[in-house]
Amino acid sequence: MISPADLLHPTPAGLYCPPGDFYIDPVRAVDRAVITHGHADHARAGHGSVLATPETIAIMASRYGEDFTGTRQPLKYNDDVSHRGVQISFAPAGHVLGSAQVVVQHQGLTIVCTGDYKRREDPTCPPFEIVPCHIFISEATFGLPVFQHPHTRDEIAKLLVSVERNPDRAHLVGAYSLGKAQRIIALLRLMGYDAPIYIHGAMQKLCDLYKEFGVELGELKPATIREKGRAGGDKQDFAGKIIVCPPSAMNDKWSQRFPSPVSCFASGWMRVRQRAKQRGVELPLIISDHADWEELTTTIREVNPEELWVTHGREEALVRWAELEGLRAKPLSLVGYEDENE
């Protein structure tokens, strides 16, 4: 059997597979890239060819333009392709629309690279699937025991209660434009909120794309205030309404146009009070698209690999945990993936 490090190993450009001559989520432009999902730190423009799920390819085209890569190779979940004797397939990762774990098989060795993943409810994408493997490469964004995300629906309920109690204020929900925003909207719908939801201009394209892929988002309206020569609502029309915007817009002047906005930030980082305070968040919503400590450790136990490799995030603690479990583990120390706004 081929040794694991010969099948996949870290390089400055990203995780590289020598026999297949491809990179997974490379951080620089390469000839052949396999992309786990559409977030900017994983999916970059300018590769010679991109192998990804059809959804991820559509997301990349929408964000970077149609010429984001030389050749597109869409591959559906659970289909597979062979390249130079290396078999590649995708399994759902439950992270965002189109997100996939990459399953690499060669000479009897199976390595699963999760990309980013979670195990919680998400109406916008199929749930994470367990794929048995020899080597399991797990992300570790929230790889510390302090990160125990509460029930997602309880957090959405917190938002709904606050909206009801503050009919004179606009609720500004900061959420990643890809994935988190649509997930929040879809969950609000599932929990019976049927008023129009207002979205920041930067989210329009991706929300449209989600709808094309059949994700139910209900009535969305642009969060625009009527100004000279521009259509939109009056400032007071936004009182008691939910507005979804990118996290960066929350502390921007943009937010000042709404009536005494309640700043809400939907993120796993909100678990830590001081993080919320530092960002000036009034209503933290602990909703994450990454696995928390419990999900990480449960998943690793369920997959039950021979060896665990840990990448981007707090690798040290997860490696320590594996050691206590009697599981061989090492950090991969890949650079270039960050998720401050998760």
């Binding site: 990160f147 678990r271 001081q274």
Partner: peptide, 18 residues
């Protein structure tokens, strides 16, 4: 594991509570 957590959070009461 506790020390790594405390290091990250920076507040004893908050770390223990989590």
């Amino acid at each position: 594991l506790f020390d790594l957590s405390y290091d990250y959070v920076g507040d004893l009461a908050e770390t223990v509570s989590l």
